[in-house]
Design a protein around this nucleic acid. Sequence first.
RNA 1: GGACGAUUAGCUCAGCUGGUAGAGCACCCGCUUGACGUGCGGGUGGUCACAGGUUCGAGUCCUGUAUCGUCCACCA
Length: 873
Amino acid sequence: MKELPKVYDPKAVEKKIYDMWLQGGYFKGKIDPEKEPFTIVIPPPNVTGQLHLGHAFDETLQDVLIRVKRMQGYSALWVPGTDHAGIATQIKVEESLREQGISRHDLGREKFLEKVWEWKEKYGGRIVEQLKTLGSSCDWDRLRFTMDEGCSRAVREVFVSLYEKGLIYKGERIINWCPKCRTALSDAEVEHEEKEGKFWHIKYPVKDSDEYVVVATTRPETMLGDTAVAVHPEDKRYRHLIGKKVVLPLMNREIPVIADEYVDMELGTGCVKMTPSHDPNDFEVGQRHNLQQILVMDEEARINENGGKYAGLDRYEARKQVVKDLEEQGYLVKVEPHVHSVGSCYRCDTIVEPVTSPQWFVRMEPLAKEALEVVRDGRIKFVPERFVKNYTNWMENAHDWCISRQLWWGHQIPAWYCADCGHITVSREDPDKCEKCGSTNITRDEDVLDTWFSSALWPFSTLGWPDKTPDLEYFYPTSVLVTGYDILFFWVARMIFSGLEHTKQVPFRTVLFHGLIRDEKGRKMSKSLGNGVDPMEVIETYGADALRFNIITGNSPGNDMRYYNERCEAMRNFANKIWNASRFVLMNLTIGKNELPEKLELEDKWILSKLNSLAKEVNENIDKFELGIAANKIYDFIWDNYCDWYIELTKPRLNGEDEEAKIGAQKVLLYVLTETLKLLHPFMPFITEEIWQALPHEGEALMIENYPEFNEAIDFPEDEAKFEIIMNAIRAVRTRRAEMNVPPSKWPHLTIVTSKKDVFKAGLTYLSKLAFAGEVTITGTQPDVMEGLVGVITNDAKLYMPLAELVDIEKERERIQKELKTAAENLRRTESKLSNQGFLAKAPEEVVTAEKERAEKLRALIENLEDSLKALN
RNA sequence: GGACGAUUAGCUCAGCUGGUAGAGCACCCGCUUGACGUGCGGGUGGUCACAGGUUCGAGUCCUGUAUCGUCCACCA
């Protein structure tokens, strides 16, 4: 039999075990018509990124699910992959080039892209290796990348087909512009934050009149692009001005006063400046009134040539100057403090500028309809359910999705502009001429697609779509999508409508949302705060299993969790506990086969029955995605039931003379341990596999064994209850001894007075060993002489020990009186319940019965306590 | 302006469909108990944020309030 070291060393086994799994090919998803498929696609991490705790959370949940399903007999497939992460990656490469004093423009598009691919090759493997370190059982042969050939083809197909259906269009619209990344962003990519700002009230004089109107703005520099002032059509104050002109200060441009219902008469002065090129609302109004659009900023948000003397100034410089000039020229009425929401780029945190720009959009309304239905009617289930509301709200109000980005890294848009006729050719194959006029003078759109455009296709592009592959046929729709709630809109929503539109099926049946991992102060982990915890370091210190178990048990579905090293330490200790329990079993093992003995002792039945309930409950919890609860139950079973009780209980047999009893104990020890390792395996794959390999076994690997489930053959609820009676007695004696500071060397005679003599007889040896009893007498009648005896009372017995010399009478009296008091209080409450007619009439029978029993026991207890009190005198 | 989440032991968190509150860590008292001191036995500690309501019975369901947090919203 194999010797295990005294302390579990994860570093010595994790790598070895992982390689063994790879060798065995156990991660491979195989099409098997006999089996039901279970598929997960990984939320692809940034190809050049590093694993952080958020990933670790995500991957652990997925790995637990996929391992459980694999063991349950499904044909399990977990598709891994990485994301090209357009902006994020491009920024990184540009930064590294900048250190060498090079900009991407110096290199040109083609050379720059070469650099990015090099970068991808250099760092692309890192995160994959880190996923393996965690234990992820992905099918690595199917590793995908959002810009690999297949995914690119899927992107192209989707773009063209949506264009053909009129669901993708190009238009000049207001979009969010990031002046630092110099690209358009979608609404989802803008983070809004309430900020202290100012509200500037400005006079606009009415032309040929002494009158003026006052408008207010939070962004005075945009007035350079004002092309109208709007009032409400029914506003009596301004009705006479409608159709007249006002003179735009500083620019001296005459702009019309228009009437539009958009204006709220109650708000401010009731006059609104219109800047159609720099405000989404104004843009809408502008469309209705055919207003001129004047863009006053360039792509770095500096004032452009349309901004008169302010041209060249940065937007905030321009703001200062504009305000100063307005003030000097007497146009500034007042300045108020004002809190308003400011949007920033989610990648670089620069404040975005709403500007009009020609971009590509996906029309959301037609796509949203079914995407809403499938979630409402449960064809896609959200766990926890509350996220349905977020989703619905977003989907119902989603604006058209701006998908073009002014970047180089990504899927270039397959659209060609004809220089001769202006037609746009959108095509699956690169065209060499305009499809309309045949001119060869065509140029391809420079822009690339939003990263999330390709991610949206991930569940089916990774399975071979647009081809009708056997994989797609078998493994799609996928089963569960596991992801953080923070990318519900970015990704989950878009996968849903994309899946429906292109595959006519839901992309997944269930979405399991998890929260964010925060630092110990509850803050988001971020680079700028420097509070990030590197999972690789955690694994180095505590082992992957400890990290996984910490993450799984430390949270409830959908909620954020704080990361504590202390918890990892506790989980490492747990791993060590299992390790040593297994060592114990191994060093006592003389058998080579795992089977249950013919004859089972009471405690055997107890542990087997406990194990059986555990298996049942764990399966139920996992079905409901309550992974943390399942893991906790396994933890408790191993530590409390198996280690602290059962192992101790087997020692008399193992160390005794009776060969049959010895073998019997070994068999049950081995059986229960093996089943427990199976239950625990998905959560702590490495240590369980390592131990299993050291135990007598038949299969190749624990990870492909069958997951335990409820088994009638080891279900002994009555014996389980009987044994609990003995356990209670043992606990009561221990408590008593501890209270009285009885030295461990003292093993007094124990007299048990009980009506359940059989039960106690069956547990005789264990009573003496675990309750430190010298001799044990089991009787149905009270001892004749009570003097000098110390009593303990349980629900089923009175136990006496001759320990009088250790008793401090005063203390003892106090103790009993205290116990008496609580017992009396409990009895009072129980009796008041039982005298309540409503309770008797309406509570379920078993609750009433339980209450009656409780009352009886309390009465007996009180009687016993009173006797003991008397005996003290 | 909406929506959601949190509020339970000193700390971090569990607590499913309502039946007299749990874990880990911390703390206190014991223990060289032949698997494990990364351990063993015992223990202290909670009017489950607050106010109402439903119910025989409410951390658990309903309504409202407070504090903290998050998301959404075209709030000149």
